[in-house]
Simulated scan of single mutants.
Amino acid sequence: MEQPDVDEPVFLISAAAELAGMHAQTLRQYDRLGLVVPRRRPGGGRRYSLRDVATLREVQRMSQKEGINLAGIARILTLSKRVERLEAEVERLRPRADLGSRVFTTGPSGNVVIVERGQRGRRDEGRGLVVWRGRSS
């Protein structure tokens, strides 16, 4: 069975409000404040995703149970998104940073250039070559 796309904007504001356990007017306020910004249909109607509903629930929890004001919640959400992006970037770069042997050379301006496994440095790059072996823990 195929998993639903959590980012697909499928819920009208009334359905999203019901799923999140709050009033539709609260969702409109959060949209104006930039806390949870749904996608818009060509006619301007809001459409919420499952991820948006989960975020609405988290905003409600932080506000009611933790006593965090909306400005604080906005900052937390912004930082959380940033962390997610950075974690994705780390995972993307992880294969290049393995602990095995690494080969470096210098570029035309003297900057260090990583030579990918199985590749050669470009001709316009320096002639100095260093093989680095990371210490094993």
Results as ranks from 00 to 15, higher is better:
114 I>S: 09
4 P>N: 01
7 D>C: 02
98 D>H: 13
137 S>N: 12
89 E>P: 00
123 R>V: 08
60 Q>Y: 10
100 G>R: 10
124 D>W: 10
98 D>K: 00
7 D>R: 13
123 R>W: 07
9 P>Q: 04
21 G>N: 12
96 R>K: 10
29 Q>Y: 15
27 L>F: 09
28 R>L: 00
121 G>H: 11
6 V>A: 07
111 N>P: 00
105 T>A: 10
24 A>P: 15
113 V>Y: 05
54 A>Y: 01
55 T>G: 08
65 K>H: 04
59 V>H: 13
25 Q>S: 12
82 R>V: 03
121 G>F: 03
33 L>V: 03
132 W>I: 11
28 R>E: 00
75 R>E: 11
98 D>L: 01
130 V>R: 10
22 M>S: 11
26 T>M: 13
105 T>Q: 01
80 S>C: 04
123 R>E: 13
12 L>D: 08
34 G>T: 08
30 Y>H: 14
1 M>Y: 08
120 R>S: 13
76 I>M: 10
91 E>I: 02
128 G>F: 09
40 R>S: 08
23 H>Q: 15
87 E>R: 12
12 L>H: 11
125 E>T: 11
101 S>P: 04
40 R>V: 00
70 L>Q: 03
65 K>M: 05
31 D>L: 06
134 G>P: 01
42 P>I: 02
12 L>V: 02
72 G>A: 07
133 R>H: 13
21 G>D: 07
120 R>T: 12
43 G>V: 07
99 L>F: 02
118 G>S: 07
